[in-house]
């Protein structure tokens, strides 16, 4: 169940390694096993999707990887270093410098404009104002949000907010982008654009993306899909050389199986 299945002929180095991670919530009375001994590895430059029913532990997994939350047990290695034993200040630095996070609930600052929200990721890295300005404008152009940079989040549509959040996550060109349902609030056209952005980010800048999604169409843009059930890795599908369409069908197949008896698969 927890054995690692690397894509065939994988040469690139492993950037993320999750080893037997357990996360417990609650007290003695009502214990929730949000993650129940999950293990997998992600190679550099991979675009990995995570799917699973609501409450299966996807957000928890991302939170543990992003060091926003700490795992109860197990090890998480990013770029070879074990983040479960890092110091608090190192963790913050790691988040600032190497991670981009797109949250399920955006987490934009309502007091800041779109521009300032995106710039924030760079200002806390103490970049020069000129570089900040250039990068923010570039990423905004790519994501099609140049017109909303002066607006406050409450003045934006849900999709625009989502794209601003995405821009903030990728503007620092992080080695690992964690995205929790980034297409959840987008119409299919903007979802497609965002996903294509992600794909080009992977191809051109060799970024690694881990994206949670509920929707098979979004998932079909990935290189590999991990299916999670009850806090454990349940199955995975690799795109390999197949077209997006056939990958989509493959994913749909697993989803329908997931709805039935789990033991039939595997």
């Amino acid at each position: 169940m927890t054995s690692q299945q690397m894509p065939e002929g994988a040469v690139p180095p492993v950037i993320l390694e999750v080893q037997d991670v357990v996360k417990l919530y609650g007290g003695k009375g009502n214990l929730t096993k949000a993650l129940n001994g999950i293990s997998f590895a992600v190679a550099a430059g991979e675009f990995v999707g995570i799917m699973g029913a609501s409450g299966s532990g996807k957000t928890t997994l991302l939170n543990c990887i992003s060091t926003i939350d700490t795992a109860t047990s197990g090890r998480i290695l990013i770029g070879g270093s074990d983040i479960t034993s890092m110091k608090q200040s190192d963790l913050s630095r790691f988040r600032r410098e190497s991670l981009g996070f797109i949250f399920q609930d955006f987490n934009l600052l309502d007091t800041l404009t779109g521009y300032e929200n995106i710039a924030l990721a760079l200002t806390i890295l103490r970049r020069s104002p000129r570089e900040i300005d250039r990068r923010v404008k570039a990423v905004a152009a790519v994501l099609g949000i140049s017109q909303v940079l002066k607006k406050f989040p409450y003045q934006m549509s849900g999709g625009q907010r989502q794209r601003v959040a995405s821009a903030r996550a990728i503007v620092t060109e992080p080695t690992l982008v964690l995205a929790d349902e980034p297409t959840g609030a987008l119409d299919s056209k903007s979802a497609k654009e965002l996903l294509e952005n992600f794909q080009s980010l992977v191809r051109q800048r060799a970024a690694t993306i881990l994206m949670v999604t509920h929707d098979a169409f979004s998932a079909s843009h990935c290189d590999r899909i991990l299916f999670i059930r009850d806090g454990q890795l349940f199955h995975q599908v690799v795109r390999g050389g197949s077209s997006r369409k056939s990958f989509f069908d493959q994913i749909m197949q697993v989803i329908s199986l997931l709805g039935g008896d789990a033991n039939d698969v595997d």
Binding site: S66, I68, R93, R95, F103, N107, L109
Partner: peptide
């Protein structure tokens, strides 16, 4: 009222000291 904003800042990697 601003606690959620500080939460968001922390999540994108702002240190407690800051």
């Amino acid at each position: 009222d601003s606690l959620s904003r500080y939460g968001a800042l922390r999540k994108i990697g702002v240190e407690d000291k800051m």
